[in-house]
Nucleic acid binder design. Structure first.
Length: 422
RNA sequence: GUGGGUGUAGCUCAGGUGGUAGAGCACUGGGUUGUGGCCCCAGUUGUCGAGGGUUCAAAUCCCUUCACUCACCCCA
């Protein structure tokens, strides 16, 4: 039988790896400038880390985790998100003792057993950033600005930053109750899912896309009107920092996020070019999570970027692989073929990309191959040239050919081609 | 888990009312002996997603199944 990837898992083929690397290196450079350090955590963790961290009642934990039992009966889970793991590492290694503020980022695959569709896979990749140890709104602004810069650096201009505040343990319960009462008074206009949600998790109704529900939701009370003074001040300060930094944003009081750990600031960077999946990045503050997972009572805020979604937004021309060999050696005859073979590996050792044909094709075929590879220069050596000590170097763009002495040819080519690089 | 759409050469796709397969691109060779991208000519490639059924005959009709895909749900 022929094997293929399992559902929701994808090969990332050579022609698209280039865009992945470009995006990652842009992110790394930007994170460096913001003082973030990379951390790598395991793909497999104790299931309880996620069920406690993300929340037992969330969709992720209740139905989307890849869980398994090891030979000693312990429950393990392939990470469905990164934050819980990073928080675990923060606590386990007492990172907060090294410095009161820790700024970390990580890059890697996540696993969620959902039905795949456009922009949604079972194994997908995230770039995550987390800032621990500061509760002030400047940190919120920092994190958000960093995310915005990341997308700007990739040349996206049609994304929108959505902002909301979910309040805190002091003010959210009151809003929740208010919203619940409001929704239960309108059950006739809601879809059956939302009638259920009104009871179990009223904030989720904001996510519903059914038209009737949208109308109801538009008239629903806004969390922003229920924020306590502290939360309101915090949020207003954040907005003023964003304004001062010329970061445009839209208020979206319907932006609720599916992980229980969020409080106060939440945000999403959205696109309308990805079908039903409109978030390319999302995050928020999670001041209670470190303590919840057994650590000190330290505040934190972070975000995650969906790498596949970013790549999908890239235009075709940006995705195409465009590496071209520096040199092609077209050898004719056995002696020239052997000599050239040695030159090729010498040149490669110096970092140049050099190709030749290992068969014994005619010159025409070799030129054709050099042409289709997009090679910049071709060195032609037949047994004649070998005897006379003079080879032919052709520039494929200008079609200009010059005679070159084959003496010390490798060093001469290294010099010429490396200079060409710069 | 629930719907809709699609499954034919490596890729993109044609194949009204059933008669065992084509085009473009790609690839290989050639257009006289050692020179690419254009053009011209020739050639290679398929268990027509899989299994079963109807029929003298099915890629084409029926059933089953699988895969992919989009949407619900949820999120990055």
């Amino acid at each position: 039988m022929e094997f293929s990837t399992i559902k929701g898992f994808k090969d990332i083929l050579p022609q698209e790896v280039g865009s992945w690397q470009r995006f990652e290196s842009k992110a790394r450079r930007l994170f460096d400038a913001f003082g973030f350090f990379e951390i790598k955590t395991p793909l497999l963790e104790r299931t309880e880390l996620f069920s406690r961290g993300i929340g037992q009642d969330t969709d992720i934990v209740s139905k989307e985790m890849y869980s398994l039992t090891d030979s000693k009966g312990r429950e393990m889970t392939l990470r469905p998100e990164a934050t819980a793991s990073v928080v675990r590492a923060y606590i386990q290694h007492r990172l907060y003792k090294k410095s009161p503020i820790q700024k970390l980022f990580s890059i890697g695959p996540m696993f969620r057993h959902e039905r795949p569709q456009k922009g949604r896979f079972r194994q997908f990749h995230q770039i995550n950033a987390e800032l621990f140890g500061d509760a002030g709104p400047k940190s919120d602004a920092d994190i958000i600005i960093m995310a915005v810069h990341l997308f700007e650096s990739m040349g996206f201009s049609d994304l929108s930053l959505n902002l909301n505040s979910l309040g805190c343990d002091m003010c959210r319960p009151r809003f929740r109750q208010e919203l619940k009462d409001f929704l239960l008074g309108k059950t006739g206009a809601l879809c059956t899912d939302c009638v259920r949600r009104a009871e179990t998790n009223p904030l989720r109704v904001f996510d519903c896309k059914v038209e009737g529900c949208n109308e109801v939701v538009d008239k629903a009370p806004s969390i922003l009107e229920f924020l306590c003074d502290e939360c309101r001040d915090h949020f207003e300060a954040l907005k003023s920092y964003l304004d001062a930094s010329n970061i445009p944003f839209v208020m979206n009081h319907q932006l609720v996020r599916g992980l229980d750990y969020y409080n106060r600031t939440t945000f999403e960077i959205q696109t309308d070019r990805l079908g039903a999946q409109n978030a390319v990045a999302g995050g928020g503050r999670y001041d209670g999570l470190v303590k919840l997972l057994g650590g000190p009572d330290h505040p934190a805020i972070g975000f995650a970027v969906g790498v596949e979604r970013v790549i999908a937004l890239l235009g075709e021309e940006e995705t195409l692989e465009s590496r071209k060999p520096d040199l092609f050696i077209a050898a004719l005859g056995e002696a020239a073929g052997k000599e050239s073979f040695v030159w090729v590996s010498d040149l490669r050792k110096s970092g140049l990309w050099v190709e030749m044909d290992y068969g014994s094709k005619g010159l025409k075929a070799q030129m054709k191959k050099a042409g289709s590879l997009g090679t910049k220069k071709v060195l032609i050596v037949g047994d004649d040239e070998l005897a006379s000590g003079m080879g032919v170097l052709r520039d494929m763009e200008t079609k200009v050919q010059e005679e070159v002495s084959l003496e010390n040819i490798v060093n001469k080519l290294k010099e010429a081609l490396h200079i060409n690089e710069r």
